[in-house]
Design a protein around this nucleic acid. Structure first.
Lengths: 217, 217
DNA sequence: GTCTATATAGCGATAGAC
DNA sequence: GTCTATCGCTATATAGAC
């Protein structure tokens, strides 16, 4: 407890009792995640990241080679953070099919219209970073969600509740409808989140169209 | 011909026999359109625009006040260039309804997946410039197209061929389906244009879903 | 291994000569 | 009205002190 004369491990560098190197590395990665998702790639400087992490700029360069590598690491970590492993599908599997779809739709729409997800979507459209980042994001983000939903649709089709010729395409269409023009307007900053009334109308219209096309009579 | 002592009009500034001021202003605007749509706002410098237009940087600043104003002018001009006044609706109004929708869908998909339109879409999602540019783009671009299609749907509903409770929402849904995940993948540079087979499948699936939901029996 | 100070370059915008 | 040269600022990336 008492600060002795010579301890090889410094008493309290930043946060909890984590080892020193990992503590700084984690602080840098955390700051990079916050700033990149808030301001984009070009809008975020290495000075900002170093200041936000409470370290010097050269420490950032010593932990991650350059800006591109740090960006890749930050986007990877953010993808894992935004997508919980259960993919929030399990908790919605009760009640009639219409209610299940509505519940899934509400959860997905809330996810993709969160500030963080909108920022990620914006960043992936800037050609600032190289192709590997975008490929990684696509596989870790939208593709995983879409495949989970496709599995759900396939199960309902096997149970005879849905009639779907192409399951993957139907899942893709469902998500495109769900995004709608609202997603683009929010991504470009033209409007904020819709109120409860508009949100319900949008969700219901999406589920309606999907069921009218694929529900077995 | 011979370089006299004092001629108020210099003989041959750049290209053809256009007036001098308009010639340079047009060259600047043309270069700005090309470079902005190709590289985005942050990725394009005023030096590049001046060099591409064949004038000095200060000439650019004297014609357009600053970079934001030039960007606004360039985006406005590009919107007008990409959207012909007839909105390419008139030529598709023959044959059965399904064929009409398919024809409209093909034309719109070709428009929004052109390199120039994809670049515009990318630029509008980067928060580089102020809100006025995005509002102008939305009104001059997607909103005009969508309203034209909504009028088409309304006419078919009045004729008893479609049953659409909310025409504007249906038009919005049609375009979101038409964009699909293909549009996002192309916008982020993850894939190129689809081949004829995939394109047909996508267009047909879009029209199918729309008609299955709204066609009168 | 970490920090202070700096090298190098490009940006938007401007002053003065013609 | 147009051009050459420059200011002031900020960016990434690095050299030397502790």
């Amino acid at each position: 407890m008492s600060p002795a004369s010579a301890t090889s491990t410094p008493p309290k560098p930043l946060g909890a009792g984590r080892p020193k190197d990992l503590g700084k590395g984690a602080a840098i990665l955390d700051a990079a995640k916050r700033l990149f998702t808030a301001q984009g790639f070009d809008g975020t400087s290495m000075d900002q990241i170093a200041a936000e992490a409470g370290v010097s700029k050269l420490t950032v360069y010593s932990h991650f080679g350059d800006k591109d590598a740090l960006f890749f690491a930050a986007v990877s970590a953010k993808c894992e953070e935004l997508l919980p492993p259960e993919l929030f599908m399990a908790e919605h599997l009760q009640g009639p099919l219409c209610a299940q779809l509505t519940s899934i739709a509400r959860a997905f729409f809330a996810l993709i219209t969160s500030d963080e997800a909108l920022s990620m979507h914006r960043m992936m459209l800037t050609q600032s970073s190289d192709l590997h980042v975008r490929e990684m994001f696509w596989k870790a983000g939208p593709q995983r969600v879409q495949e989970a939903f496709a599995a759900f649709v396939q199960a309902r089709a096997d149970a005879g509740e849905l009639e779907v010729p192409d399951v993957r395409r139907a899942a893709s269409q469902f998500f495109c409808l769900l995004k709608g023009e609202l997603h683009m307007r929010m991504a470009s900053g033209l409007c904020c989140a819709p109120d409860a009334c508009d949100l319900d109308a949008h969700i219901n219209a999406t589920v309606d169209l999907f069921l009218r096309a694929h529900a077995t009579r």
